[in-house]
Amino acid sequence: MLLLQLIINGIQVGALYGLTAVGFSLIFGATKIFHFAHGASFAISAYIFYYLYAVLLVWWPISILASCFVVVAFGVALDRYVYGPIQSTDGSFFTIFVGSFGVAVVVQNLIGTVFGRGFISVPSALSKSVELAPGLYVAPAAGIAVVTAVACFVGLQLFLGRTNIGIALRALSESSALVRTFGLNPKAISTCAFALGSLLVVPAAVLTSMTSGLNAAIGGRVMLISVAATIVGGVGSLRGAACAGLLLGIAENLALWRFDPQWSEAVMFLILFAFIVLRPSGFFGRVATS
């Protein structure tokens, strides 16, 4: 029963990891920007929701909408005013990385100053588990996590497959020259990638604020997991990132079955390490082109 419980926990956590990772992968794949501040987006989204819903007692759909709005604005603003200028002068992988890292540091400390550095959580009945079978506890949040993750992912695939801008977005990850030849503006598409990618952190941020709770430093871990999932899934493969997120979540929890808890993070990164060395093209074997 412990095993089943750990797998279910893993799916709940992994679904959210997957969703966040897809956001990162979308941005990274389409723009080649190593968006280290993706974790900061997560923290911003979670704290905005917390502040509106739990402190100002705003109705939840409005809180979530406001959170979406702010986080999209944050992502797009970063693309326009930080990454854009860096790309126009230099644009090397590491220059962008350092700039993005700086943003993440600023956001984390700003959140700490504004909302406090301690632990906060959004009180909600959704995080309270019920005993489904003897010894098997599942919270409504688990179901919501899985359903939301699947819905978001299907929606994203439809968007990328059916709409012009979606197709352009996919094309951009192949070649920006190609996109320009077809008369599309890579800048506008890049903005779109940031908007979508940032939007995808909201479900995970809102649910995490209810289940695990938040602290100002939460972005760093989210970021590490997104990077790991993106690589394990294969850069540019959204399907891969989603599956890898799920895999990492399950692995993290399954590790508890036999190991001490402090090894569960190490297990996740061991998987990352193994994938890079043995199968650098990721889950679905798209050949890396760098």
């Binding site: 590490l224 790991a228 690589i231 090894w263 990164f269 061991l270 990352l272 390490f273 890079i276």
Partner: peptide
């Protein structure tokens, strides 16, 4: 083994190694 891969992948590999090593240091 790790130097066979390039660029972004090596960064990620070193990231994974860093997390693993920190666990070993504390355990």
């Amino acid at each position: 083994p790790a130097l066979r891969v390039r660029g972004d992948y090596f960064v990620a590999a070193s990231l994974g190694f860093q997390v693993l090593a920190a666990t070993v240091f504390s355990e």
